[in-house]
Write a protein that binds this DNA or RNA. Sequence first.
DNA 1: ATGGTCGCATCGCGA
Length: 262
Amino acid sequence: MSFTLATWNINSVRLRENIVAKLMQEEAPDVLCLQECKSPVDKIPLEQFQALGYTHMVARGQKGYNGVAILSKLPMQEVSAYDYASLGHARHIAGQLENGVTIHNFYVPAGGDVPDREVNEKFGQKLDYLTDMRDAFHADKPQKSILVGDLNIAPREDDVWSHKKLLKVVSHTPIEVEHFGQVMDSGDWSDVTRNDIPEGQLYSWWSYRARDWDAADKGRRLDHIWATPDITNAGHSSRILRDARGWEKPSDHAPVFATFDL
DNA sequence: ATGGTCGCATCGCGA
């Protein structure tokens, strides 16, 4: 079988119900992973999504902040939802398809403004969250698994508009990139997006604060799709739907896609 | 060097 998966930080699923539906109608991924739903699970507007064929959902939510959901046209069962770093935040949910593939959906903490855990508690929480992820995947090696989400780190020089200017900016600092690499190594994860698109600038997020995000193009690749070695070769057709950043009342993130033939 | 824009638990905070 073949299925297409997308990951999208939606920045309020209730406010953006209509562009989620637009994505479902126009792109029709089989599995859609959302982050920053900013909604309790029982207030996610499921009916419209179900009417479009997304009859399965696994999710964790809280009022106002965070929140992750996997909407699926394919039958899916919840397998876990961990509170890494014990923050009490809804930042992870995992579901399993009938073909045995597990999908982990993450919203890693953004980490605040100052990249120093001594003066900024949120930066320490981000690093601790990544360390907990690393330890969990090290202790329990994932198999037949896909990991997606807003990981809030752009690891490569060509994942940001200016490597030099962003070296001290949270999301691209060397210590974050090192933690990111340790999470990847712990699960033998490979970067499906970069396997498919190995060269060139690639972004999935553009700040709301830019005067003209499209012309300025000061983006970062914060949203990722990874796979374990047993299925990574099945991944193909990766793309980022940049157009969605220009939709009506957009999220500041664009959806990232990959297809798996399994 | 600064400020810029969003969303919501809305006049403060997180992103």
